[in-house]
């Protein structure tokens, strides 16, 4: 086998196989979602109508049903759910950033031999079950849960606070579950910063805090954006956290999709919701992708 021949084979394997898999099982499914979102729900198996059928010899009938999207526009519940999802994701992301940035900074500036351990401790919870970690908060936030018992014992409150099944519990769950996704890119970014820049600022008489604001913070912007997107995008479509910790009436689009699909068996409406969610998430996703490519461009 000649080298050129083996090079072509390796290209085919390395590029072709992942492309094939992701094209078939990641890209093509979105076409299916678009297709079903234009169908009508029926009582059949599968529960939607066909988009086209041969009526007679040579006549193809195509039926596109826009009623699902019309319903999404007319019924306020869906817009409210979308706005609430974006709001929860925004608050969650900001809280993750406020807690995660100082932590990432502290880890990045720790002595080198302690850094690995500190980083390990951030990643470790990520390896235990996400579902179980969310579940842990049910026992903590309950009316007769540990947090309330503790606060009552301290005498800070006279009667139990209602935290479980409120928006507050959803925020806590989001920050708890997604904090590592914020810290890791920030840490990677902060350790790559050139320390001589801070020394130069200090030599020129700049106070440490001011140097942080003028030098470190702007330079860590790519890490901030990357971490924020890694939290924001999945949280908009989050299901488990609002379902287990949020109030039954609270609306998030991921939970709504689940209900339309599993409880109401309305596959076309669930698909239409997925299309809306995808459309909303395209902008932050493109932002993240751009930034990543810029970052690679400057590194190589």
């Amino acid at each position: 086998m000649s080298h050129r021949h083996s090079h072509r084979l390796s290209r085919l394997l390395n590029i072709g196989l992942p492309y094939f898999w992701l094209g078939l099982f990641f890209l093509l499914p979105f076409v299916m979602v678009l297709r079903i979102s234009l169908a009508e729900p029926t009582l059949a198996q599968p529960p939607y109508t066909a988009l086209w059928e041969w009526v007679e010899q040579g006549v193809l009938q195509i039926r596109l049903n826009l009623a699902n999207f019309q319903l999404l526009r007319e019924d306020d519940i869906y817009l409210a759910a979308l706005l609430n999802s974006l709001w929860v994701a925004l608050v969650g992301t900001v809280c993750c950033l406020l807690l995660g940035y100082p932590m990432a900074y502290a880890i990045a500036t720790a002595p080198e031999r302690r850094r690995i351990l500190l980083l390990m401790l951030i990643i470790l919870p990520f390896w235990t079950s996400f579902l179980i970690r969310v579940y842990a908060w049910i026992g903590l936030l309950n009316a007769n849960g540990l947090l309330n018992t503790f606060l009552l014992w301290l005498g800070v409150i006279d009667e139990p606070l209602k935290i479980l099944h409120t928006q507050m519990a959803v925020y806590i769950g989001v920050v708890y579950s997604y904090l590592p996704f914020m810290i890791l890119p920030l840490y990677a970014n902060l350790t790559r910063l050139d320390p001589t820049l801070l020394e130069a600022a200090a030599d020129l008489g700049c106070r440490p805090f001011r140097a942080f604001l003028r030098v470190t913070l702007p330079l860590s912007m790519p890490g901030i954006v990357a971490g924020s997107m890694l939290v924001f995008i999945p949280v908009v479509g989050e299901f488990v956290i609002p379902d287990l910790l949020g109030s039954p009436g609270s609306l998030m689009i991921g939970k709504l999709m689940w209900t339309e699909f599993f409880a109401n068996k309305d596959w076309p409406l669930a698909s239409a919701l997925a299309i809306v969610l995808l459309a909303v998430l395209v902008v932050p996703f493109v932002l993240m992708q751009r930034l990543q490519q810029d970052d690679e461009g400057t590194r190589t």
């Binding site: 990641f26 299916m32 979602v33 890694l230 479509g237 299901f239 698909s271 996703f285 992708q289």
Partner: peptide
């Protein structure tokens, strides 16, 4: 050729909400 496309296909699953991946694959 198609490098950007592959990068896109490899980044999207990292952040794509589970409900979308689940529903779309089921329909496929």
């Amino acid at each position: 050729r198609g490098r950007t496309g592959l990068e896109l296909l490899l980044t999207a699953p990292l952040v794509m909400p589970d409900v979308i991946i689940g529903l779309s694959l089921l329909l496929l």
